[in-house]
Amino acid sequence: MVYIPPQDKREIENYMDNLQDFINDTSVSQLDPLIKMAIIHHQFESIHPFYDGNGRTGRIINVLYLVINGLLDLPILYLSRYIISNKSEYYRLIQSVRETNDWESWILFILKGVEETAEQTIQLVKGISKLMQNYKFKVRELLKKSYSHELLNNLFSHPYTKIEFVMADVGVTRLTATSYLDKLVQAKLLEKLKSGRYNYYLNIPLINLLMNNSADLRHKDVEQIESVNE
């Protein structure tokens, strides 16, 4: 059975107004935020308000809803991997709610996803923290008195850095920033990659950590899971 979302502009707006009230007005529902998040996700995907990007937007709403309700300090818990790994069940359950009102199975599916994703995210954060401590020791030994915590943070703010990034974050001249980065490359803590006019300094261990954590995510899968009707 192919689901056809609302097509009329006014109908879509009415549904979205109702959903916004459910999200923001606590007097409408006293449900646990995790249960509400599961309901919100289903309703948003069923309304399907945009021509494109409903899946991405729905997953962003998930994590932001947990943040505004105090269940997360930072938006770092994304259900994409879980949904993609279980996309057949995702499709089946989201349609089952529409056909048989089976909210319980849908909510339990999402709660399991939150649990699994939280465990994976905790392991990733621990891995990054351990790697950062390892780099702290090595960079401090390498740069001696020139070491700064701002430089260490710079190396882990993104999987790569640039001379300009170091200049801005550490507050040093271009010559000094270049010297720092070249020393880190020589010590094999960074890998230098030239692209066009620019040099990029890659934190390969950090990239490997992030890539291993998202190994099951492929571009084609992300596109397929955008929404049940995209």
Rank of each mutant, 00 (worst) to 15 (best):
D169N: 14
V170G: 00
V170P: 03
G171W: 02
V172R: 05
V172P: 01
V172H: 03
V172D: 03
T173G: 05
L175R: 13
L175T: 10
T176Y: 06
T178C: 02
S179Q: 10
L181E: 05
D182R: 14
D182I: 08
K183M: 12
K183D: 12
K183N: 13
L184D: 04
V185Y: 05
V185A: 10
A187V: 04
A187F: 05
K188M: 07
K188P: 05
K188Y: 04
L189W: 13
L190R: 02
L190E: 03
L190Q: 01
L190M: 07
E191D: 04
E191V: 15
K192P: 02
K192Y: 00
L193N: 14
L193R: 15
K194P: 01
K194G: 06
S195R: 11
G196F: 08
G196L: 06
R197H: 08
R197S: 15
Y198F: 09
N199C: 04
Y200Q: 07
Y201S: 11
Y201W: 13
L202V: 14
N203G: 09
N203K: 06
I204S: 07
I204W: 04
I204C: 05
I204P: 04
P205A: 10
P205V: 08
P205W: 06
L206P: 07
N208C: 04
L210T: 02
L210M: 14
M211P: 00
M211L: 12
M211H: 09
N212M: 11
N212K: 15
S214P: 02
S214M: 11
A215Q: 09
D216N: 12
L217M: 11
L217A: 05
R218N: 10
R218S: 12
K220M: 02
K220Q: 06
D221G: 13
D221F: 09
V222A: 06
V222T: 07
E223W: 05
E223R: 13
Q224Y: 04
I225S: 11
E226D: 15
E226W: 04
S227Q: 04
